[in-house]
Simulated scan of single mutants.
Amino acid sequence: MPPEPLQIRIATAADSDRLIPLINEAFSVETFMTGPRTDPERLAASMQKGAILLAEDHLGQLVASIYVEVRGERGYAGMLAVSPAKQRLGIGSRMMKAAEDYLRTHGCVALDITVLSLRTELPPVYRAYGFVETGAVPFEYPHPLKDGLETHCIVMSKPL
């Protein structure tokens, strides 16, 4: 079965009302967090600091997004969100490729991501995309974790 056709483009502020529910729904599996993953203020700040790539299906429905940021010769990608109804169809890997292409065209030679240590299912997924663990950084989020849990961010990198 051929992959679903997607239109991938840079999001604008006009897309915010559709992006926020998509991102929060995709990250609803992070039940250890308090509060939403994003809100209008955080999304606007992300769009000013970097860019958000979004994917729409052939009906114009928003199905995925990913944050990208150029940091000199290194790029950063994060907040990969795929609609739960569209997960496990290869859309996440297509969004990672779009992020890599975007960063490559902006002069980046490497890509960094961070994965919460509590999301133990994610490092193997990103290893399959060619990432390797390169370090760890403290977890910084505006909302605390539930039940006194602790986590940190695993830094993973790959050459572009």
Rank of each mutant, 00 (worst) to 15 (best):
residue 120 T to G: 09
residue 71 R to E: 12
residue 56 E to L: 05
residue 141 Y to S: 14
residue 103 L to C: 09
residue 52 I to V: 14
residue 101 D to V: 14
residue 88 R to W: 02
residue 88 R to V: 09
residue 127 R to T: 08
residue 117 S to K: 10
residue 51 A to S: 15
residue 130 G to F: 06
residue 56 E to N: 04
residue 108 C to M: 07
residue 155 V to L: 06
residue 22 L to Q: 01
residue 148 G to E: 03
residue 142 P to H: 05
residue 93 S to E: 14
residue 141 Y to L: 06
residue 68 V to H: 06
residue 102 Y to F: 15
residue 151 T to M: 01
residue 15 D to Y: 08
residue 24 N to P: 11
residue 86 K to Q: 13
residue 35 G to Y: 03
residue 150 E to C: 12
residue 6 L to P: 04
residue 123 P to A: 04
residue 135 G to H: 09
residue 137 V to L: 11
residue 97 K to W: 10
residue 124 P to Y: 11
residue 117 S to Q: 09
residue 41 E to S: 14
residue 38 T to G: 05
residue 57 D to F: 00
residue 87 Q to I: 02
residue 141 Y to H: 13
residue 15 D to P: 03
residue 68 V to W: 01
residue 160 L to N: 09
residue 100 E to K: 12
residue 135 G to E: 02
residue 128 A to C: 07
residue 147 D to M: 08
residue 142 P to T: 02
residue 39 D to M: 05
residue 23 I to A: 07
residue 158 K to I: 12
residue 120 T to V: 13
residue 3 P to W: 06
residue 113 I to F: 02
residue 110 A to F: 01
residue 74 R to C: 10
residue 26 A to L: 01
residue 106 H to Y: 11
residue 69 E to S: 10
residue 90 G to S: 11
residue 75 G to L: 08
residue 154 I to F: 05
residue 44 A to Y: 00
residue 41 E to Q: 15
residue 71 R to P: 00
residue 15 D to R: 01
residue 132 V to A: 11
residue 135 G to F: 10
residue 148 G to A: 05
residue 73 E to C: 10
residue 28 S to L: 07
residue 36 P to M: 15
residue 37 R to H: 09
residue 154 I to K: 08
residue 123 P to G: 07
residue 23 I to S: 07
residue 109 V to H: 12
residue 43 L to D: 12
residue 36 P to W: 10
residue 120 T to N: 08
residue 143 H to M: 13
residue 78 G to T: 04
residue 147 D to R: 13
residue 57 D to Y: 00
residue 129 Y to C: 01
residue 60 G to F: 03
residue 92 G to Q: 02
residue 120 T to S: 14
residue 119 R to P: 03
residue 8 I to N: 01
residue 52 I to P: 01
residue 126 Y to G: 06
residue 11 A to H: 10
residue 76 Y to K: 04
residue 83 S to R: 13
residue 37 R to Q: 14
residue 101 D to P: 10
residue 83 S to E: 12
residue 51 A to H: 14
residue 68 V to P: 09
residue 50 G to H: 05
residue 9 R to G: 06
residue 104 R to M: 13
residue 113 I to L: 15
residue 123 P to C: 04
residue 47 M to L: 14
residue 42 R to F: 03
residue 94 R to S: 10
residue 39 D to H: 10
residue 142 P to V: 07
residue 5 P to Y: 02
residue 24 N to Y: 02
residue 6 L to A: 03
residue 75 G to T: 06
residue 148 G to F: 03
residue 136 A to L: 07
residue 110 A to M: 03
residue 89 L to Q: 15
residue 17 D to T: 12
residue 112 D to W: 03
residue 133 E to Q: 14
residue 104 R to V: 14
residue 1 M to D: 10
residue 48 Q to V: 15
residue 4 E to T: 07
residue 29 V to H: 12
residue 137 V to I: 14
residue 101 D to T: 15
residue 88 R to I: 05
residue 129 Y to D: 00
